[in-house]
Simulated scan of single mutants.
Amino acid sequence: MKSLVLFDSMSGNTEKVAAAICKTLESEAMAPQMTKVGKETDLDFYDYDLVCVGSPVIDWLPTQTMMNFIKKKLKGYNRQGLIKPAAPIIPGKFGVCFGTFAGPHIGEREALPMTMWFRSFLEHIGFTVLDSWHIVGQFNNREDLNISGRLGNIRNRPNENDLADVENRVRGVLASLEAWRS
Rank of each mutant, 00 (worst) to 15 (best):
L82R: 07
G38T: 15
L112E: 09
L25E: 03
W60Q: 15
R169F: 09
G107P: 05
D44Q: 04
F98S: 11
K71D: 10
L82Y: 01
S55N: 05
W60Y: 15
D8A: 13
R79G: 08
V57T: 09
F45V: 07
P32F: 14
F118W: 04
V166A: 00
V170E: 06
L130R: 02
T115A: 05
F101A: 11
S27Q: 13
P56S: 10
M114L: 15
T128N: 02
P32R: 03
D131R: 12
N161Y: 04
N68I: 07
M10V: 05
L177S: 13
Q80T: 08
G172K: 03
R119A: 04
F139H: 15
N161M: 05
K75A: 10
D165E: 07
L61W: 02
S182P: 12
L4D: 01
N153W: 10
S9T: 00
K84E: 01
S132L: 01
D131I: 02
F121Q: 06
E143K: 12
N161P: 01
F45Q: 13
F127Y: 13
T41Q: 05
D162M: 03
G76L: 02
S176H: 10
L4R: 11
R171N: 02
Y48R: 08
T65P: 10
T24L: 10
N159M: 09
I90P: 04
L82P: 12
W117T: 14
E160F: 10
V173N: 08
I58V: 04
Q80H: 06
D49W: 08
I90N: 07
V17F: 01
G107E: 01
G99V: 04
P62G: 04
E28P: 00
S55I: 11
N168A: 15
P56Q: 11
G172W: 10
E28V: 14
A86G: 00
Y77G: 08
K16M: 14
M30N: 06
W60I: 13
K93P: 04
L151K: 10
S132C: 05
V166Q: 07
A31D: 11
V17I: 03
A164R: 13
L74I: 03
M30V: 13
G137S: 01
T115F: 10
K72D: 06
G152N: 10
V170P: 03
M67T: 01
S11Q: 14
F127P: 12
I89F: 04
E28Q: 11
M116Y: 12
L4P: 03
Q33M: 13
Q64P: 05
S148Y: 01
I90Y: 09
